[in-house]
């Protein structure tokens, strides 16, 4: 290795120093494209094409009489003025606005506890916390459905013990908080692990320097470590927001335990699903999906910009 490596760097350095891409380098770069190609093909076929198709479909309307007709943006105007659609959007926004910060605070709390080594058996706890990630959302909704079940479920019994009689966790007033609890159950472990890893990558010396500077613990956590893991937090807010706005499975399954509480338009994705599949109004559904997509983009991007402007949490 040492023999050839002595001459190799010189030639490579020469190649790199050449002003524009030589034929050799260009040929090599094209091979890079070859590596990416299989993924790109699948990506185009199964993401771009359906997306384009959806956008096309949204501009049409198929009627029983008259077949498929180009209707332009009429689907969109219908949606934008539809109270049903927007009430679902508002609901998921409220859902996200409560669930995400609560979950992140809990996740950060535990991530910090593990990072500082103040909780014994950190590894064991972290593994336990991560188990919900291995549980399919359907199964988790099923399990929690049983637990929350108004008549026979254990939580109702417990509530009775504490004096809260006849609490129906799946009633229309309590079902959203219940789903928030489920979501926190599902995602805290994952978020906590990512934050923990980010905290671990803070150089030890910086914390030691802070200790020598006699910095109180709360200041170390909030003023030194927290700002340094901001990229991870931003990414988590981003991912969590996208997930929260697409809430679908939990309400769908919970409806089986408590009929009627979850309306057709309870969340945007539910509404899209019901419109497209159950009512077979594909065009309208497609338009809704596009509107939802743009809404998600808008909210995600603004939350990112917001973070960057503030220059840090708190």
């Amino acid at each position: 290795m040492s023999g050839t490596a002595v001459t190799a760097p010189a030639r490579v350095a020469q190649a790199r120093a050449r002003p524009r891409h030589s034929a050799w380098v260009r040929r090599r770069d094209r091979r890079g494209l070859a590596f990416v190609m299989p993924f790109l093909v699948a990506f185009t076929l199964f993401m771009i094409v359906p997306l384009a198709y959806a956008i096309c479909e949204s501009l049409f309307n198929s009627r029983i009489i008259g077949g498929t007709v180009f209707t332009g943006l009429s689907n969109y105007t219908q949606i934008l003025s539809s109270g049903m659609f927007w009430s679902g959007v508002v609901r998921v926004i409220i859902f996200g606005a409560i669930q995400i910060p609560v979950m992140l605070i809990i996740a950060f709390f535990f991530a910090t506890a593990f990072d500082l080594g103040v909780a014994k058996y950190g590894r064991t706890f972290r593994t336990i916390f991560f188990i919900p990630f291995a549980v399919p959302v359907v199964v988790s909704a099923l399990m929690w459905g049983f637990l929350f079940e108004p008549v026979y479920g254990p939580f109702s019994h417990l509530a009775n013990l504490f004096g809260f009689h006849n609490t129906d966790f799946l009633s229309s007033s309590l079902v959203l908080p219940s789903i928030i609890v489920i979501a926190i159950w599902e995602w805290t472990g994952y978020n906590s692990l990512i934050l923990y890893t980010a905290l671990r990558s803070v150089p030890r010396e910086i914390v030691e320097a802070a200790i020598l500077d006699d910095t109180p613990l709360w200041k170390i956590i909030l003023k030194i470590k927290l700002p340094m893991v901001r990229p991870a937090i931003v990414m988590l807010i981003f991912l969590n927001t996208i997930g929260a706005l697409q809430l679908f499975v939990e309400p769908l399954i919970l409806n089986n335990y408590s009929a009627g509480v979850i309306t057709l338009n309870w969340t945007p994705v539910l509404y899209i699903f019901n419109t497209s599949i159950n009512s077979a109004q594909y065009n309208l559904g497609a338009a809704m999906a596009v509107v939802l997509g743009l809404t998600i983009v808008a909210i995600s991007v603004t939350s990112l910009l917001f973070r960057r402007d503030r220059g840090g949490m708190a």
Partner: peptide, 20 residues
């Protein structure tokens, strides 16, 4: 673009996929 596709809701991709 690939990363950006995460922003697209599942419904926008999966439902039309059915039609495709």
């Amino acid at each position: 673009i690939i990363i950006g596709s995460l922003l697209v809701p599942i419904g926008a991709i999966t439902l039309p996929l059915y039609l495709v």
